[in-house]
Design a binder for these strands. Structure first.
Lengths: 346, 346
DNA sequence: GTGAAAGCGCTAACAC
DNA sequence: GTGTTAGCGCTTTCAC
């Protein structure tokens, strides 16, 4: 109910001290006597003194806030990235401001502007699919706000980048399909705009080549969002063809789930007739019947790494030291379930 | 690369004006001539002037940041709530700081402290299951930071509250099971600690009573987390009994998915032998086979409403006007799928 | 319409 | 060890 928050001045007046002395005491500075320190602490406690962080932030020109822009929160991969970011940031005493671009460049731009207003110390961003211009990020950098890109990155800007090895993940996924005896492997992919989808496509092609399998145009289905509906429709088309695949590697889990639904509708056995492989391991993937094999991305670890990098840059920037930008590639791993292995209990 | 951000002083010096005049011009104050206003705007533009928000926030003692604490981001309901919060906050020019408690009171406490450091203008919180003491929130209120509670609320604190009508949702869900001809309806519930679970249990009981169905102890399964595993095990136990239910209403969707998996393992037909109903409509619920009937909560709307309420309180608080705390109850609705309706195509 | 002066709360630099 | 002075960048009040 204390309408008026108490200030150092109030404590100083009550104890007959000067304001700086009270400040020194509360900040545990060396040049202050133990006795006054004790007095100050006790009174501060009693009055429920709370530092006015507006003043401190203003003085230091630092907010201890990291901005985070991602395309969609309601997305298994990104919620986990955010999870990792928050966990790691808290350890270092930083807070997280969150914004979602909804895959819109305009929205991403507004996010950056909102953040500038809040004077974030650094930005972690996963670009929207529609972002081609990165001037908004360059502007942040010019104002000494470090930027770290994660997952969906751009080469148009020099920053630290964190990606996972989409190429290798896709390669291994495709190779797994070969190893279970599949030779006619289709791929459902996206618009190839984001770097990630393109890399998965590259990995798929490389694995086919490695195992001397022909790359057939009619086995490649490009769709827009790589959503469940896209996967469903693409699979129906694939199975309508004369030359049918006996395995489908999908660039996303939702598409793979659509594929499974389509195959079930057509009464095609999974994985005996057609095996299905996804990418990203959404939590719904273990729920579908049959459970979906997929490629696990180190989502939380990517978030944590991003925080470590950005805090490092913030520190260096404060000291006017130069920063070296690296691209960090994180390893994926396969999670194998019944959509490729079959049910061993039956 | 302008190491040194430019200030009003710089513009003033260059134009031979005083600092306050430049300030007036940039803020479109009335008592400034059009000609100087124009000159100032042009130079500001040219120099890429950006207001130092640290100074402004300090002066106004306002951050335009709303803190949000929720138990878990990686949770369909909460990601959607956050989605609504961010969307609505952006409209009003507010940013969102996010923290997750992981259902831990200690963690929730740290979140509040982190937020105090960042001088949030208001807090939207969904309490952790383990929170019984609300002094940390009361402390915020005492420092003039409005608090709005959402979904998981406490009566120990006077604030605006947003909940959805869990009682009615559960009532209607249970009634739907009656309407499809089920008379022996089991309920899988939680520790009854959070208000929400308790209300769902109440709704279940009320619907049974309304339809003159007996409430049997052996049809009530209490579990800890109401997770998929919990639902799976509880269902196995239910179906092991002599007196078996022919419908199961689960307090959460994950539990319902566990229930479906258990029933399928036992080769029990859904919904002919046992119908299954969930609560919350997770995105995986439409993916499972058979697709799960559930209760839809207006998650995004709840988030938006929370932002409207908190901003209103922030405004009133600035003007030292009193706030009236209300509890807003939002309506749920049923989404009916094959786990209760059966497959009409077969 | 414009400038001079003051102050938001805190801390660093300088005296003594 | 402690007090005095000054300043972070901006806006508001009061002169003229």
């Amino acid at each position: 109910m204390s309408k008026h928050n108490i200030r150092l001045k109030d404590i100083a007046k009550e104890l007959g001290l000067s304001v700086p002395s009270v400040s020194r005491a509360l900040n545990n500075k060396p040049d202050i006597s133990e006795s006054t320190k004790k007095k100050v602490f006790e009174l501060a406690e009693k009055l429920h003194y709370q530092r006015n962080e507006f003043a401190v932030n203003f003085k230091n020109q630092q907010s201890f806030i990291i901005g985070v822009i991602i395309p969609q929160i309601v997305h298994h991969f990104f919620s986990n990235v955010i999870n990792g970011i928050i966990t790691e940031a808290e350890k270092a005493g930083y807070g997280i401001m969150l914004y979602q671009s909804n895959e819109s460049y305009q929205s991403e731009l507004r996010g950056v502007q909102t953040f500038q207003r809040s004077m974030i110390d650094g930005l972690i961003i996963s670009l929207s699919d529609s972002t081609t211009n990165v001037d908004h990020l360059r502007s942040l950098q010019n104002h000494n706000v470090p930027v770290v890109m994660i997952d969906k990155v751009s080469n148009a800007l020099e920053t630290a980048k964190i990606i996972c090895d989409d190429f290798k993940g896709a390669f291994e996924a495709t190779e797994h399909l070969v190893q279970i005896g599949k030779t006619k492997i289709a791929h459902i992919t996206g618009s190839l705009e984001p770097h990630t989808t393109k890399e998965r496509y590259r990995g798929y092609k490389a694995a086919l080549k490695q195992h001397n399998l022909e790359l057939k145009d009619q086995f490649i289905k490009k769709c827009n969002l790589v959503s469940q509906d896209d996967g469903f429709n693409a699979t129906l088309e694939l199975m309508k063809q004369h030359d049918k695949p006996n395995a489908i590697f999908c660039a996303t889990d939702p598409a793979a789930i659509g594929a499974i639904k389509a195959l079930k509708k057509l009464n095609i056995k999974i994985p005996e007739d057609v095996a299905v492989m996804g990418f990203s391991d959404w939590n719904m993937s273990s729920v579908i019947d049959p459970p979906l094999s997929s490629v696990i991305q180190p989502d939380q670890e990517m978030g944590k790494k991003a925080v470590q990098l950005i805090i490092n840059e913030i520190e260096l920037s404060k000291q006017n030291k130069p920063v070296q930008y690296k691209t960090h590639v994180m390893e994926t791993s396969l999670i194998l379930r019944e959509s490729t292995l079959g049910n061993k209990n039956e």
